[in-house]
Computed example of a mutant assay.
Amino acid sequence: MNVVEKIITLEQKESVRLDPDRLKGLCAHLGDTNAIDVLCRTIEELAVRLSHCERFWRQRDWTELRKCARSLVAIADQAGMTVLARVASDVVQTVEAGDAVGTGATLNRLIRVGEKSLTAVWDQQDLSV
């Protein structure tokens, strides 16, 4: 019988980055109130699409997962969520490569980064930067 003496737990921490210039641009173009409204709707849409991506993964619906992740790239990029856009692009690439294991790993990372990105936007004290 083998005995494990020490178990190591890997803690996965993701850093996110919001593009302040993109947020400033939104505020300059739309005004503070409208920019906040757009960001709130964007956050809501991103949360819904992250949930859809996870569901498509569980259903092994690669076509819809790819489509949903691609839409996340565009939305996240417009909102200045550069890391989220990049990781969503990684999910698209793994789906296109037919790499189910890689897709699972990058999708889990997408969900972690997505949650942190959404929280980071909400935590902004002054969206007009």
Rank of each mutant, 00 (worst) to 15 (best):
residue 81 M to D: 03
residue 30 L to F: 11
residue 12 Q to W: 09
residue 113 V to L: 02
residue 84 L to A: 05
residue 77 D to N: 10
residue 18 L to D: 02
residue 112 R to K: 11
residue 47 A to D: 12
residue 71 S to R: 09
residue 68 C to G: 09
residue 22 R to W: 00
residue 3 V to D: 15
residue 129 V to P: 04
residue 100 A to T: 15
residue 48 V to F: 07
residue 39 L to Y: 05
residue 126 D to R: 09
residue 100 A to D: 14
residue 69 A to D: 02
residue 112 R to C: 07
residue 86 R to F: 07
residue 81 M to A: 15
residue 7 I to Q: 12
residue 90 D to P: 04
residue 58 R to C: 09
residue 101 V to C: 08
residue 123 D to A: 12
residue 72 L to Y: 01
residue 89 S to T: 13
residue 20 P to R: 11
residue 121 V to Q: 00
residue 96 E to V: 07
residue 104 G to C: 04
residue 1 M to W: 14
residue 68 C to I: 05
residue 84 L to H: 01
residue 77 D to R: 10
residue 61 D to L: 01
residue 112 R to W: 05
residue 42 T to W: 04
residue 1 M to H: 15
residue 105 A to V: 14
residue 34 N to A: 14
residue 104 G to I: 03
residue 70 R to P: 03
residue 48 V to T: 10
residue 100 A to W: 09
residue 72 L to W: 02
residue 122 W to I: 14
residue 80 G to R: 01
residue 46 L to W: 02
residue 73 V to H: 05
residue 53 C to N: 02
residue 10 L to T: 15
residue 125 Q to L: 12
residue 23 L to A: 03
residue 119 T to C: 13
residue 27 C to F: 04
residue 53 C to R: 00
residue 29 H to Y: 10
residue 85 A to P: 01
residue 119 T to F: 11
residue 111 I to W: 05
residue 72 L to S: 03
residue 125 Q to A: 12
residue 75 I to F: 04
residue 120 A to H: 01
residue 7 I to V: 15
residue 49 R to Q: 09
residue 90 D to Y: 06
residue 50 L to Y: 04
residue 37 D to R: 14
residue 119 T to K: 15
residue 104 G to R: 06
residue 22 R to T: 11
residue 79 A to W: 03
residue 43 I to C: 13
residue 39 L to D: 02
residue 66 R to K: 14
residue 97 A to G: 06
residue 92 V to F: 03
residue 70 R to A: 11
residue 68 C to Y: 07
residue 44 E to A: 13
residue 71 S to T: 08
